[in-house]
């Protein structure tokens, strides 16, 4: 998958316009109030490239906040089950930043770890991700600190990197990406593969947050019981914002919404920050306070997941930091924890 093409700047809009007319659904960043969010496109003029990152990560298009997984109806003393409508048209999501795309790569592992999650996988196979590299990270971005970069390719099918007047370097990374390129090849110029190294370095240099967090946090009993968790978590209010805006968080709750006639079983986003997340039916809660809950969040991302899957579960997008009502900052917390361990984390 080392093929690369160039896409001239003026061709981008034309390509998107033709995509819009195709049988594929085009989803791209658009303004919504003060935010930029991924939305189905009505006209190409609505698409904006004037954003550092979208408000919500792209995970919602594969793992929606709430979806029905089963319906049922009571019939006498029995129950009739029905599958929800699974039909889905093919989609292209344009403008996914490398951090979000890397999040998808992580979710791919999770949702295929225990059999195949057909709800996720169905959407994934019907979608082509056209990534868009970053040139100007935000003050809250720290993807380089977690082993990624503003031009990383993990999770994308095609990756566009802006190269100034020359247009975009187009990297083909998967078969799905290749398929799309082939269908719209007339927009893409073959030619020498320029290196995106310079662009990458320039973008990375603009990143104010730089730390060595990619090593993860090594778990020990001393660390687990350390009082630092109570300190950092004291101001946490236990809402679900950080988990919900995170490209990699994937915990969900299965609930029934039913009446006397039948009901729907839904899969809803859940957050380890909620106090009820680990409450048992007996009433006992093994994570009774915010300190243990926030510890769970941090260690899941920097310790447990890496142990199992070989990569951090944080992509450094910074959304949890900017959206947190009380400025919980996982970047700062990870450093503080490494400090406690005596591990070098400054770069």
């Amino acid at each position: 998958m080392m093929a690369c093409r160039m896409l001239r700047p003026e061709k981008l809009e034309e390509w998107l316009a033709e995509l819009l007319r195709s049988e594929r659904r085009l989803i791209a960043p658009q303004r919504q109030g003060e935010d930029v969010v991924f939305q189905p496109v009505q006209t190409v003029d609505d698409i904006t490239l004037d954003y550092i990152n979208t408000r919500w990560p792209v995970k919602a298009w594969f793992f929606p906040p709430s979806e029905p997984v089963l319906r049922y109806r009571y019939q006498g003393s029995g129950v009739e089950l029905e599958q929800p409508n699974m039909a889905l048209e093919p989609r292209v999501i344009f403008g996914v930043r490398p951090c979000d795309a890397a999040g998808l790569a992580i979710l791919d592992q999770v949702f295929n770890s225990d059999g195949e999650d057909e709800f996720y996988t169905r959407r994934r196979t019907m979608t082509t991700i056209v990534g868009l590299s970053c040139t100007h990270p935000a003050a809250s971005c720290f993807c380089t600190s977690v082993g990624l970069s503003p031009t990383a390719s993990a999770g994308s099918d095609l990756l566009l990197t802006p190269m100034g007047d020359a247009g975009y370097l187009v990297e083909t990374l998967t078969a799905r990406g290749e398929q799309l390129l082939w269908e719209y090849g007339h927009y893409f110029a073959a030619g020498e593969c320029r290196s995106k190294e310079a662009v990458t370095e320039a973008a990375e240099a603009r990143m104010s947050r730089q730390a060595a967090l990619a090593q993860g946090i090594e778990l020990s009993e001393r660390l687990f019981e350390h009082p630092i968790w109570a300190e950092v978590a004291r101001k946490c209010l236990g809402c679900g914002v950080c988990a919900y805006v995170c490209p990699t968080c994937h915990c969900f709750d299965i609930v029934d919404d039913s009446d006397a006639w039948g009901g729907v079983r839904c899969r809803n986003w859940d957050s380890c920050g909620f106090s009820l997340f680990t409450r048992h039916a007996s009433g006992h809660n093994p994570r009774p306070q915010q300190d243990s809950r926030y510890r769970q969040r941090v260690l899941h991302k920097f310790s447990y997941f890496p142990q199992r899957w070989g990569r951090l579960m944080c992509v450094g997008c910074g959304r949890c930091v900017t959206n947190c009502p009380v400025n919980m900052d996982i970047y700062a917390t990870a450093q503080a924890v490494l400090q406690v361990q005596g591990v070098k984390h400054e770069t």
């Binding site: 906040p65 709430s66 209010l237 236990g238 809402c239 679900g240 914002v241 919900y244 986003w269 909620f274």
Partner: peptide, 8 residues
């Protein structure tokens, strides 16, 4: 998205 930040 029922993050309940308003409540928290």
């Amino acid at each position: 998205i029922r993050c309940y930040a308003c409540r928290a």
